[in-house]
Design a protein around this nucleic acid. Structure first.
Lengths: 196, 196
DNA sequence: TGTTATACATACCCCGGGTATGTGGGAGCT
DNA sequence: AGCTCCCACATACCCGGGGTATGTATAACA
């Protein structure tokens, strides 16, 4: 076999991303072998390494892709309809979106579990700061402007809230009794309300 | 070389644990090679695999060891002096201990970063439930008995609080402006106080 | 003191990520 | 149309690293 058209090539690349994402989700990064990926994609190792320099680079692109999807949805929900005029509602909407993503198995395995170990603490944090936490920061900032929380507590509170949501996803994945998207969001709102 | 005395053997095993722990902390699990460990420990691969069936088993023991140390300190601080008569103070003391551990580089790399990816979500959660979260659960339970929080919110709140503390350690490691053990604990207490 | 069990050492296997190189056909130019 | 170049893969190979099979000398116990 030899060279394909540019359209075919783009399809191959997308097929690699799709197949790898499925495998990474199901088996984790280290248990997913390059041979498995290329087999399912219908090509050979040479093809994969033509598009991605390393297996880690492939993972990184999938990681970014997932985060991007989540961010897009969070932005959309946060600025939707009635939330537009109510910053607090926008904040809650963003949190809810984030929470529902943190409950997804693919998001957990790829972003939350393998992400830190594959990308390293620095790399993971760098990208995560730009996405998940921006919404949280905006929400806390709003509470500070309203005088509900002290300004000096904005940063630590944002950290606490962001990670509280992150970890809640794991608990939901385990089907812990009494821990669902609804109950967590309910408890979360109760805490925020008590702040007001 | 051949068989050593039991005392020597125990020292060898402890040396392996000590050296591996240092390497796991500095380089992470996957970047730490068995050859590195045995070289620093002054033996060969045969020796290591005599004590530990796999590299992962070695990691698991170190993971458990670290969690045990943290748990011991948390228990001690939670039941110390004046905290003994005040369950709320005991709860806070336990949280503070946990927070200070979550800020430690070794705890972060081994328990928080590599733990989930090496041990898997199930294994990590299983052990973590028995340790870090027991204290948090006890604290929230106490607040529920006092009627401060609704009983149905005990589980989700415990999840939120536990993970909020977990993630705060990462933020501190990054030297984020305004995020220290003191400021986080201050913000954390503010939230709890508003609940009362 | 003889026997056994044990604490390692030595040599090896094999899987998996990555590389070096080949090749055949599509795209552009004339 | 035909020639050339380049590119999308295929093939073959390397090598590092986890794990194993086996050997061996000595401590421990009878």
């Amino acid at each position: 076999m030899a060279r394909r058209s540019k359209i075919e090539a783009e399809k191959t690349r997308e097929r690699l991303l799709k197949v790898a994402r499925e495998l990474f989700e199901a088996q984790g990064f280290s248990d997913t072998k390059v041979s498995q990926i290329v087999e399912r994609a219908g090509i050979t190792k040479g093809g994969l390494f033509h598009y991605f320099p390393t297996k880690e680079a492939l993972f990184r692109e999938i990681w970014t892709q997932l985060q991007g999807e989540m961010d897009a949805e969070a932005r959309q929900n946060a600025t939707a309809s009635r939330s537009r005029s109510d910053p607090y509602a926008a904040f809650l909407a963003g949190c809810q979106t984030y929470l529902s993503w943190a409950a997804r198995p693919d998001y957990q395995q790829i972003v939350l579990i393998d992400g830190p170990s594959v990308l390293g603490l620095a790399g993971w944090y760098e990208a995560d700061n730009d996405l998940g936490r921006r919404n949280v920061n905006a929400g806390i900032e709003y509470l500070a402007r309203k005088g509900i929380v002290a300004r000096k507590r904005v940063q630590p509170l944002a950290v606490l809230v962001h990670n509280a949501l992150n970890g809640a996803g794991f608990a939901m994945a385990r089907n812990e009794p009494g821990v669902t998207v609804e109950s967590v969001l309910d408890a979360f709102e109760a805490v925020l309300k008590s702040l007001r």
